[in-house]
Amino acid sequence: MHIVECVDINKTYHQGKVEVLALKGVSLAFEKGSFVALAGPSGSGKTTLLNIIGGLDLADSGRVVVDGNAFDKMNRSQRADLRLNKVGFVFQSYNLIPVLSALENVEFVMLLQGLPPAERRKRAKDILDEVGLEDMYDRRPAELSGGQQQRVAVARAIVSNPSIVLADEPTANLDSSTGKGLLEIMKQMNEKKNVTFIFSTHDNMVMDYADRVIYLRDGMVADDRVKR
């Protein structure tokens, strides 16, 4: 069984009178534990697709099934719940809660899940150690570098053992060596925890890490290459 399945997804944005066809009949399936890059030029629909897979946005037609759950029949709260338990997000511009420390940012997801404090703390510390931030528990986002913030974001996305982690251009704001470091950590997590990663990029270096690269062009799948 596939961890994520998209069947014939269409999405149109209406901007005033202009209609933008962002996705046109996209059908994709993702294996559990895969490390997939969504490639394509700016405006090709990568962000839109990721948002729809993660249940942040709804497709106009088509079906998305994440770990056996279809988003399209759910209300807002149910979708929030599914995101909380099955989906981790990492965004291009760092997206931590500014008033919380690194540790608290990671704990926050588990707080929403209702885990007991001691367990929250332990798991948050463990995961921060794994992404190499063992000395940064108490720093606020503003006191961390971009690469460190993204690593906290990865830690937060993965700490609750989701089915998939979606990362929209996670390295776009980082210099290439920091970006590489982040990808290596993502890859490590992917292998160690067998969590599916789907990330978008237009950087060839980043695609090299992926074991499958899907090319989007004008809202359609132009190419789909499995490397390993």
Binding site: S77, A80, F91
Partner: peptide, 16 residues
């Protein structure tokens, strides 16, 4: 607003 977006993305329900 952006922060609320993040909070919602990581699974905070509207009620919360």
């Amino acid at each position: 607003t952006q922060e609320f977006g993040v909070l919602m993305a990581i699974g905070t329900s509207p009620g919360r």
